[in-house]
């Protein structure tokens, strides 16, 4: 029993990160019907932003309160990653807005490859895996045989908070309303006085900064390397599709489902079956419910 509770906690931890990244895929898809295949690598860059920020911060001022270190690192990574994503959108995707959709997808794949290889070639990063310095003290609590660490608690709580905030932004604010309107009919939105290009950039910025929350949290628990964006990006992408791409709550649900797949596959099967299970899930879903679990088939526009 304790074993399963332990695994559920682990699945929530991994699932939170997948969900945070999946949100970026789903938001961009919702607004532009484009899959931003560079998103996994944008997530990877965010972990390095967190790495450099925290390393620098702790080397110049050791003994800062952990809360400050954590929040400062998180905000810097979010801001830097958002800036990168907006830059990519403006330089690489926007000129292709009216081109066939496949051009933007291929460009996104190219941008992803560029980011990976740039990071490998960039001396301060390089191909070797790295650890973030401890942002918060790691304390393990033993609750009747189940181990819970402070890092695990922070990952789950912060992810939950960010998802709640995003959901509120999309549902309750004017910007969120504009995003939803653009996802329905971006040609009519300017007639409401809404600057569509600015909302699109904002969507990229928001998606990337949420991925950066995922990146910082991920870096607190695991090692980071320039190729991590590929596998994690794919898993997050599958999460978004499983939940229903374009659907915010779907991406969250999908992230947690993939978290459970990742943690529970090795319980029943050899752990090398993980990708097999995840991609099979994707294939089955595409066959039987292509709109995902929470996605609805696009209604006819009259």
């Amino acid at each position: 029993m304790q074993f399963y509770i332990q695994q559920i906690l682990n699945a929530l931890q991994v699932g939170s990160v997948y969900a945070l990244i999946a949100l970026g895929y789903t938001m961009v898809y919702g607004i532009l019907t484009m899959i931003n295949f560079a998103h996994g690598d944008i997530f990877m860059v965010s972990t390095y932003l967190a790495f450099f920020t925290s390393t620098l911060l702790l080397s110049i001022a050791a003994g800062l309160p952990p809360l400050f270190t954590f929040v400062f690192t998180l905000l810097t990574a979010m801001f830097g990653t958002a800036l990168l994503a907006v830059l990519i959108e403006r330089l690489a995707y926007k000129p292709l807005r009216t081109a066939p959709r496949i051009s933007a997808v291929i460009t996104a794949l190219g941008v992803g490859l560029f980011l990976e290889n740039f990071m490998v070639a960039f001396k301060p990063v390089g191909p070797a895996p790295r650890f973030l310095p401890p942002l918060i003290p790691q304390i393990n609590y033993d609750l009747g045989g189940v181990t819970v660490s402070t890092i695990q608690i922070v990952i789950i709580l912060v992810s939950g908070l960010v998802m709640f905030l995003l959901d509120t932004i999309v549902r309750r604010t004017m910007v969120g309303m504009a995003m939803r309107a653009i996802s329905w009919d971006k040609f009519t939105v300017p007639l409401m006085g809404v600057p569509v290009d600015r909302i699109i950039s904002l969507t990229f910025a928001l998606g990337a900064s949420i991925a950066a929350v995922g990146g910082t949290l991920y870096g607190m628990a695991y090692t980071i390397d320039p190729y991590m964006g590929i596998r994690i990006g794919w898993w997050a992408f599958i999460s978004a599709v499983v939940g229903g791409i374009g659907n915010i709550r779907g991406a969250m649900l999908g992230g947690f489902i993939l978290g459970f797949v990742e943690i529970f596959t090795p319980v029943f099967l050899p752990s090398t079956y993980r990708d097999f299970i995840a991609f099979s899930l994707l294939l089955l879903l595409l066959i039987f419910r292509p709109t995902g679990i929470l996605g609805r088939p696009a209604p006819q526009k009259v």
Partner: peptide
């Protein structure tokens, strides 16, 4: 606009609100 251009996925009130952007 032609064909009304209503945002079907928004509520009536949200449609009106968006126009006050």
């Amino acid at each position: 606009p032609e064909g009304r251009g209503i945002f079907a996925n928004l509520t009536v009130l949200e449609n009106l609100k968006l126009a006050t952007w």
